[in-house]
């Protein structure tokens, strides 16, 4: 429960901070003082700050009560909760944040490389590494099959969109060879 209290405090503080930053940014919008372009941003930021403060207060005041599920009393919430739990593939396993960071880096490199080396190469490398990264441990990874699949899928998507749906994805070094 102490963990959920800390989480509540962190979330509340983040909500408050988001509101504050938005308020400061909104203050920079040139305005006439009445209902102008800065009116709604100001209202929204005040709302966010208030809600952040309420959440902080609630989390701080309820250290032992099951606070994140304020409305879990009704059947809809229980059913939703049950569904979300079952959706988590590994039950009570601790989240693997290293995988998350590595995946985000892989996605970042994929987007970064798309123009210079072209969609087919960038997507092939991304798919190969990402699937390898997420493959279940304990089983050997079929490297060759994986590489082949990555290339075939990327090339199929590229050509399908280029010639089927007229969407010109970056071709990179292949540009001179394509019509």
């Amino acid at each position: 429960m102490a963990k959920s209290r800390t989480k509540g405090l962190v979330v509340g503080a983040t909500m408050l901070l988001t509101g504050l930053i938005y308020f400061l940014l909104a203050a920079r919008i040139p305005g006439s003082g009445g209902v102008d372009a800065s009116f709604f941003p100001h209202m929204l930021s005040i709302g966010m700050i208030l809600l952040g403060a309420i959440h902080l207060f609630q989390s701080w005041r309820q250290p032992i009560a099951a606070m994140p599920q304020e409305m879990s009393g009704d059947i809809i919430e229980q059913a939703r909760g049950a569904a979300e739990d079952e959706d988590a593939p590994a039950g009570e396993m601790a989240p693997d944040y290293l995988s998350v960071v590595l995946s985000l880096l892989l996605i970042g490199f994929f987007v970064l490389l798309m123009r210079p080396i072209g969609f087919i190469f960038a997507a092939s490398i991304y798919l190969f590494l990402q699937i390898a990264l997420l493959s279940p441990s304990g089983k050997p990874i079929p490297w060759l099959r994986l590489a082949l699949m990555a290339v075939v899928v990327s090339a199929t998507i590229f050509f399908l969109f280029r010639y089927g749906f007229s969407l010109m994805l970056p071709a990179g070094p292949l540009t001179p060879f394509l019509s």
Binding site: P89, M93, P95, Y97, S99, V100, S103, L104, L133, S137
Partner: peptide
């Protein structure tokens, strides 16, 4: 969609045995 992909990454290599 992307948030869902990141959620799968969170499960890491534990894999799913449905």
């Amino acid at each position: 969609a992307i948030a869902e992909v990141i959620k799968v990454a969170e499960a890491g290599r534990a894999g799913s045995n449905i």
